[in-house]
Structures are given as structure tokens and as C-alpha cells.
Computed example of a mutant assay.
Amino acid sequence: MQYAPVTTRLAGLGSDKWVLSAAATARRRAGQEVINLTIGEPDVPTPDSLIHSAISAMKAGRTGYSNGRGEDSLLQALSARYSAKLGRSIGTDRFMCLPGTQTSLYLVFMALCEPGSEVILGDPMYATYEGLIRASGATPVPVTLRPEHNFRLQATDIAEKITNDTRAIFLNTPHNPTGAVLTPSDLDAIGALAEKHDLWLISDEVYGDLTHGEARFTSALANPTHENRVITTASISKSHAAPGFRSGWLCGPAEFCTRALPLSETMLFGSQPFIADMTADAVASPPTLARAMATRMANRAALIHAALDGVAGLHVHRPEAGMFALIDIRALTTDSQRFALDLLAATGVAVMPGISFGAALEGWLRVALNASDSDTVEACQRIARFVQALTPEQLATTI
């Protein structure tokens, strides 16, 4: 039988990236104990106020068809939020509402790229990014994010990768999995590069409300000089603890939204109005839940650092934002997936291998910060015992 080339382009880029998460789930279903630190879900349930908002909207009859751009109430709420944050008017014609950041990014790449296009992005990267780019026929061009720059993407490194086929630069700030936050000067330099070479600048900003401590998030839209080529995406999945509602959006030039609208309508023809009403209530409120969550996650990153940094050669990288810490295991092994599988089998602690996020993170682990403090401490104790008990023979053969 014949299949479309997209199925070949995406082979191995879906659930194959999440082997450890699937193994942890299978272990739990088998009745075995597991501390699952693989998935970046919020550490609290969706607030009752948002659930009641969705229920009220359903009871009010908001269960019909919508449209490809979004419900007026949500578009107005997004316009008010972005205008207030950016200090200038951002009209409703610059937004499109879709089921989550993932769908928004899929629409963006399908609308901007084609076979032969190249998209520059940082390595490591979120596990689905390569698939999003390849789905459009474009080729991802990775740029190594270096620890000495705190994993922040550098304009000078991007410049070396630009060719005549480059169509876009893809940012993720705050970054998953490293927790890096691009500074205003970083963004200005990257924006100037995009202007010079007439490139699109795409930015996934879903963790924007989850900065830690003194870190401050700056949107790629902050500098109006570049706004005619910038498209950002976000959602309520992380900031409002509502991942299962699949409610996100993009903000870009009005012309982009007009050009992309038929594609959105072909894909979905609108999201659920009752979820749009709930989302409008969410984005109109201050990010109180996100700030509290970020504080807890920063504290857990500190717990992990205190417990594991320096143990048996481990090094813990503390994030500036987001839901993850990184553990450098290169002193022990460069096979992060084998290490993570062995760790799960021996201790019941599930973490993500760095290789799931790109070649640059091989020899690292990504650890979610959404478990309770007590589970986080217990997981660290198990990891410490595991690495301290490893023999040279085990390092050579098992890991």
C-alpha cells in the first residue's frame, strides 16, 4: 500500500521519544511503585473556578460550532492581556485560538514552510519540535545550546547556520528542557538577524508565567521593530493547570492570521466555545496560580541540587523557569536512555533521558519538578544510592 511521505518523515518522532514515560506507566499498571518525574504537568489540579466557568458555559448553551479564528470573548481577553504586557495595542486580528500550543505550532509551520525550507532551532529542544518542523516538509537545523551560556540560544551561533533555504528561527523561551530564559539583548540580537535575512521568528512561550526567583521573562514580541515577522504561541496548559482542556493560541501579524485562517478552518473549524469562555476567564486573571507553582518548582530544583550535585560525579543544572531540572551524568555514562531504564528498574524512579530532547543533551537527564517535596527528596535519595553503588563493570556493560 502507498502512504504519504509525511508518514516517513515522522517515523520515530512520536511516542518513541517517550519510552521512559510509557515504561513508568506500565510499571504502575502492573502494581509496582514508581516516582514518575517524566512529564511536565502542573502540580495542582485545574482550579475549581475554571471548571465551574466551563460548566456554566455549557449549561448556557455554549456547545455549538465556533470558527477558525476564535470566540470574540477570548480574542478580546487576549488582546487586553498582550496590550497590557507589551505596553502597546495588540489587536484581536493578531490572534488565532487553537487546541493547545502544539496545534498552534503545527499550523504555523504548515503555513510558513514547505519541502526544502530550513528552520533553525536550539538543541536540546522539546521532544515534539523536530516532528512539527518535518511535518511541513522543512528540515530542522539544530544549533547547540551550550552550558557556558546557560543554554541560551546565541545569535552568533544562529548566523553560522543561515542558508538561502532558511525560512525561520524557532525559539522556546522559557526553554524546555533547560529552563533557560532569553534576555532582551538576546532577543534583540536574534531579531536583528531575522530582519537582516528576512526570516520568520517563531517563539513558543508557554512557560512565560513560570519564571523562578529573580528571572524575568521577555516575549519575542517585546521589541516592536520586529513584530511584523514574529509569531508567538502559548496556552493555559501550564500557567493555569489545565493541560487536558487543550486551549492555546498564537499571536502574529494580522496578515499571517488572515493567510493561515483557511488552513485552520480546514484542520479544525474552531475550538469549543465553552472552553474558549473558560480560557477568557483564565487569561483575564492575574497569574497567581502560576507564580505559586513556579515558587514550589524552584524550591524543588534547589532540593535536587542540594541532594545530588557532586554525588558520584553528577552535576545538577538549576533552571531559571519551567518545570524541569537537568542532571549531567556524563561522568558516569553517555547513554542516557540506558541509564534511565536501569534507574527505573532498580529504584522505581522515572526520569527522561536527555537524548529524547536532542543530541546535545545526550549524557543528561531531565527531571520533572511536579512531584511533592517528599517524593522529590525520596527520588533523590534513590538516585544517589543507585549511582554510588555502580561498579566499574556495571558502568562498562550495563549502562
Rank of each mutant, 00 (worst) to 15 (best):
G354D: 08
P174G: 00
D375H: 04
G70A: 05
R385P: 03
T63K: 04
Q2T: 15
F386P: 00
S185C: 12
L210A: 00
R94D: 08
A276W: 15
I169N: 07
R27L: 07
V119G: 06
E265G: 01
S264Q: 11
P45S: 05
A331F: 01
T166R: 03
A368H: 02
L187A: 13
P319R: 02
Y129H: 02
L199H: 12
G270R: 10
E378C: 11
Q32E: 15
G310F: 02
A234M: 12
D165S: 10
D209H: 04
A30T: 06
E160M: 15
K85E: 14
E195A: 15
G31M: 01
R382W: 04
G31E: 01
R94S: 12
P5N: 09
L182S: 06
P287H: 07
T376F: 01
L201T: 01
E160R: 14
L86M: 08
R382A: 02
F274H: 14
R216N: 02
H175M: 05
D335F: 07
M278L: 08
N67R: 10
V119N: 02
S247C: 13
N36P: 04
E130P: 03
D281G: 11
A346R: 15
V206L: 09
A292G: 03
P286S: 04
A321M: 03
Q337M: 13
C380E: 02
L268T: 03
W249M: 05
P124Y: 03
I383P: 04
R246G: 08
A307N: 13
A22I: 01
A54Q: 08
K85D: 11
I190Q: 09
L132K: 11
A368I: 05
F357C: 03
A77F: 04
S104F: 05
D93M: 05
F256N: 10
I231K: 06
A331W: 06
A30F: 06
Q2Y: 15
L145Q: 02
L332C: 05
